[in-house]
Design a protein around this nucleic acid. Sequence first.
RNA 1: GCCGCUUUAGCUCAGCUGGUAGAGCACUCGCCUUGUAAGCGAAAGGUCGUCAGUUCGAACCUGACAAGCGGCUCCA
Length: 671
Amino acid sequence: MPEITTVPDAGDAGEVAERTVATGTQAWELFRDDPTIIAARVNETLRDLAYVVQDGDRVSGVAIDSPDGRAILRHSTAHVMAQAVQELHPEAKLGIGPPITDGFYYDFDVAEPFTPADLEQIETRMRRIVKEGQRFSRRPVSDGEALSELAEEPYKVELIGLKGGTGGPGGTEAVAEAAEGASVEVGAGELTIYDNLRRDGSLAWKDLCRGPHLPTTKRIPAFKLMRSAAAYWRGDERNKQLQRIYGTAWESKEALAEHLYRIEEAERRDHRRLGRELDLFSFPDELGSGLAVFHPRGGVIKREMEDYVRRRHIEEGFEYVGTPHISKEGLFHTSGHLPYYADSMFPPMQMEGADYYLKAMNCPMHNLIFRSRGRSYRELPLRLFEFGSVYRFEKSGVVHGLTRVRGMTQDDSHSYVTPEQAPGEVKHLLEFCLGLFRDFGLDDYYLELSTRDDSKPDKFVGSDEDWASATAVLEQVATDSGLELVPDPGGAAYYGPKISVQCRDAIGRTWQMSTIQYDFNQPKGFGLEYQAADGSRQQPVMIHSAKFGSIERFIGVLTEHYAGAFPPWLAPVQVQAIPIAERHHDYLREVAGRLAERGIRVEVDDSDDRMQKKIRNAQLQKVPFMLIAGDRDVEEGAVSFRYRSGDQDNGVSVDDAIERVVDAVRRRVQV
RNA sequence: GCCGCUUUAGCUCAGCUGGUAGAGCACUCGCCUUGUAAGCGAAAGGUCGUCAGUUCGAACCUGACAAGCGGCUCCA
C-alpha cells in the first residue's frame, strides 16, 4: 500500500509535525484521540472529518467549541431542524439555513406559520434524529443532477441558478446577507448534496449544502429552538415571506445554559424595563407610538447630559441657537429633503393655504441663520448648535424603546467652513465626540464610514468628484484616529458621506450614536456664500454633527451600558439617607441639607419602613451611596457609608462622607 | 409597512369548555421604633386596550383599530 505524507498543523503552538499515513486515510483518523474535534482544516479550507487526506496536506483539527466548530455545529443543527420540519410538514419547502451569531436559522415556505406548539414538536423530532446518529455524507453533484434531485425545492433551484451571481460590489446589506446565507448552500465551487444516512445506510434526508458538517447528528450536544418569525426570501421585501425558525446550539449543556443565562441578563438590563423600574421614562399610549415622556428621575439624566453637552459645545467654539419645530414645506424642497424623505416625515398640516411640516432635521433652519446676513471668511468656521427636536414617521414595526423613536432631540450642530478648513473641522468634531464618550464611560465603540452606493445614483446627489473628495477627507480623519474603522457602503446621506461612532452596549449590540456628515449639496441648494479675502463670493462646506446622536437613544444605550447603575454624576438620586429609627431623622436631614448645599441630589427615607427595607429599596433603585445613621453614628457625628456594591465603611465622619460623595461626582467616576 | 404573538389593578401575573373578576408587590391608613436586601394588619384600587358584531349572556368567540413584543424590510 503506497503511503502519503500529511502535515498536521499544530495551530496555536506553531509546531508543524510531518506524519506519514496510508493512502485513503480519512481526517478523523488523525484526531481519534481528541473527541472535541468535529471537522478538519485542510490547507485553510474546512472539511468534513471523512475527508481523505492527500499528499502534502496541512491538516489541523477544528474543535467544537472554536468559532468555526460552533458554526459547523450550528449549521448541522439547522439541517437536523429542517429534516424534522419536513418530516412533520412534508409540504414545507426549504429556504436557506445558515449559522449566525450564537445560533442558526432555517427558512421554510409553509402555508401556516409555526406555532409554539409546532416548535416543541419539531424540537422533539430533532432529539430523535440526534439520537439516531445519522451520518452527514457529502456527495458532489453536477448542476443538472442537483436540479433534478431538488426539483421539488423551488428555492434551492433558484439558488442553483444563482450560483456565482450574487454578492459583488454595491450590494445592499440585505442582499449581502442573502448571498451570505446562500453561500452556505451553494458555495463558490462545485455543488454538493449532503445525505443524512441512518445507521443501516438508508437515506433519511438530504439537502443542497456546501458543508462541512459534523460526522453524525449524535455529535450535537445541546440545542434549543428559540422562536419563529417571518423573513422575506433573500431579504427583499418584494419577495414572499418565509417562516424562519431561530435556534441555538452549543458544545455542551453547560454552554447552552450559560447562553440562556446571558439572554436573561440582557433582558434584565433592557432599558425599556429599567426605564419603568427606575421611574425614568414611559411611552403613554395617549401620545402615540415612539413618543417618550421623561419622568423626574429620567429628567435628571437628560438634564445632566444637556448641561454637559451645551457647555462643551460652547467651549469648542459653537454658538447656541434655537429654531422652531415646524416649517412651511418650501424649506424642505430647498434643502432637497422632501423628494427623498417625504415618506419618513409626518404628513403636512394645512394652514392659510400653506403646507407645514414637522421638521425631521435641523440643518435647513441653521442654513437660514447662516444666510440671514452677508458672511465673511473671517467668521468661518461658523458653528451653530442647538437641541433640535425632530419628528420622523418611523414605520410602525421598527419603533423600539428609546433607541428608535418618532420624536427625538438631537444635539445637532452645523459647522460652516471653507473647503480648506474642512479636514481640520472634521478632526475637531471627531475628537469632541470621542471625549464625550470617555466622559460618559462608554469605551467599546468603533467608527463606521458611510459612503455612496454607486449603483443607486437616484439616492444620492452631487458630482462624482465632490463625493470622492468628501469621502477622502472623512476617511483620512477616521484612519488617523487609529480606531477600528468599518466601511458602510451605501449608508451615506443623500447629500454626502458620514463618519459615525457605533457604540457597543454591554450585551454586544451596536448603535449609531455620533455622526459627522460632510455636505457640499445643501450650501448649493440654499445659495450659501461668504466673501473671501480676495473679495470673491465662495460657497462654504457644511459639516453636520450630532455628538450624542439623539438624547433619547443615548439615554437608552447608557441605561443598558450601566444596567441602570449610573455613575454618581448621572444618578437621579445620588445619596439615599437612611435613618435607623425615627429619632435619627433630624440628624440625617441636617446631613442631607449640607449635601444639597454642595449640589448633591439627596433624599432622606423618612418612611416608617424598617431600615432593612429602606436599604433594599435604595439598592433596587441603584442609588450609588447610602448614608445610614443610628444612635452610634449620631453620637460620633458620623454615618455608616454604604456603597451600591454592598461595601460599607462605618463611623465615617459627616465631613468625610460629604467629601467622598462630592469627589466621586466631580470626577465622574463609577462606584 | 409585512408575518406571528400579546394586551386583565400602578407593576408582575392567575382566571377550566362563554354565566359579568383574583393574588403578590406598590399606593393609602393603622400598629410596630427598628443596625445592613421585604415587620404585622386593614382599606382602597379594574366598564378585563378601544369600537363594533355573534349570543339570553362575552375578559373568554369574530372583525376592525390602537399599543406592545419577536423577527423581516427600513433607518436623513
